[in-house]
Design a protein around this nucleic acid. Structure first.
Lengths: 215, 215
DNA sequence: GACGATCCTGACGATTTCGTCAAGTTTTAT
DNA sequence: ATAAAACTTGACGAAATCGTCAGGATCGTC
């Protein structure tokens, strides 16, 4: 018997670098993020994940203990990219340049990983119950750092006197919106679906709408 | 028999103004919007709706044909308020005042009806499949009108030359964000939960961050 | 107080879903 | 070649869910 039965059965814990495991887990996760983002946690069934992955259902359970386990793995994966764009905001940089890079990168990354972005948004919309304490802590730390940078700009009169927290929320909300609510945006812009050019326009217009000069 | 059985059975269609019916439907809808917004369509069970409404499950089915019927009723209700705030944006008004009113009213209404707002956001996140053609059409018409107003401001040099569609998306995304993703916002602002004062601050800071003067 | 319309409800069937299991097959290491 | 580890899979059980039904209770009105 390859596996132990009974309560708390533990399967191979990632320490082996099995090729097949890596390939199949990746396939399952890829299919899952699409389904979860389109139909939510409860709306997605394991059978569906199995079918779309071209695997029997029992095989999915061989790789993941439960549906929740798949979901949690995805949260962890997506979370790793969460703050990448924020790193552009550093006190020594020029505000307009730094924020420009941030907006552009955020838009581009959420465009390229639309499913992940929507998946994460859905999770946050439900209150972020799946986020670990560590992950919440990390989000806060990174946010604080960015706020500190903006505060320094303000102190040096290189940026208007705006509460950095509200300002960041505004930028974050806007950039997320384009991929998370793509159908609404596409309708508003009167295009059948959003392409790269729409995202480029968005970055440009967003930056034009922000007041960069201190009063 | 009060009801017909068999396919396409039709229950009393709202033409009678039964007091009891009105009360119970309202109670069911009120409970449902909370549950749907917290757990999504598939995550919400009729039994749960029944329990929280203090009614037996069969009684819920007496008032609504199906879970989808409840959902659709809610969509229609929430949709009626969708464009209320947008009406502030009229060409003859001052841009700063009109947009100020819009932002404040949007924030306030989504604060007061947080469940509805999250419910609607969840629906749009999934692609807005429940929205009827008429409703989509209406959203577009209203958006166009607001865009036309802004375009006029721009033509008269009373507003910077920004694509009104992107600008409106930015405002809409931001104002929605505060109630739809309240836990994230609360964490960012370092308060246990959002109160009216946070929303007031938000309105003020958002308006400070927007460039109103034409170049 | 009677009689029709409206409202209420416990029990039920059909279906779907999660997750398990035991017995197979393939890969890997020696 | 061989033995262990890793992988695969069809069938299955238990639980949950949707929606129905038939009959009983209550309300409004004449």
């Amino acid at each position: 018997m390859a596996r132990r039965t009974g309560g708390g059965s533990r399967k191979a814990n990632g320490d082996t670098d099995g090729r097949i495991r890596a390939r199949n887990e990746a396939r399952i996760l890829q299919v899952s993020v699409r389904l979860f983002s389109a139909k939510g946690f409860d709306g997605t069934t394991i059978s569906e994940i199995a079918e779309d992955s071209d695997l029997p259902k029992a095989n999915v359970y061989y790789y993941f203990q439960s549906k929740a386990a798949i979901y949690e793995r995805l949260i962890a994966e997506v979370f790793d990219d969460w703050d990448a764009a924020l790193r552009h905001i550093r006190p020594e940089r020029d505000a307009r340049e730094a924020l420009g890079d941030y907006v552009r990168e955020k838009l581009e990354s959420s465009r390229r990983n639309a499913a992940q972005s929507r998946f994460f948004a859905g999770e946050l919309l439900r209150g972020g119950k799946f986020l670990s304490r560590r992950q919440r802590r990390h989000m806060l730390d990174v946010t604080h750092e960015a706020c500190a940078a903006i505060d320094q700009w303000i102190a040096e009169k290189r940026f208007p006197d705006i509460d950095p927290r509200h300002f960041l929320i505004m930028i974050w909300a806007t950039t997320q919106f384009y991929s998370d609510f793509a159908p609404v945006v596409a309708a508003t812009l009167e295009v059948p679906r959003l392409r790269k050019s729409e995202f480029d326009d968005a970055a440009e217009q967003i930056l034009k709408a922000i007041k960069f000069d201190p009063d």
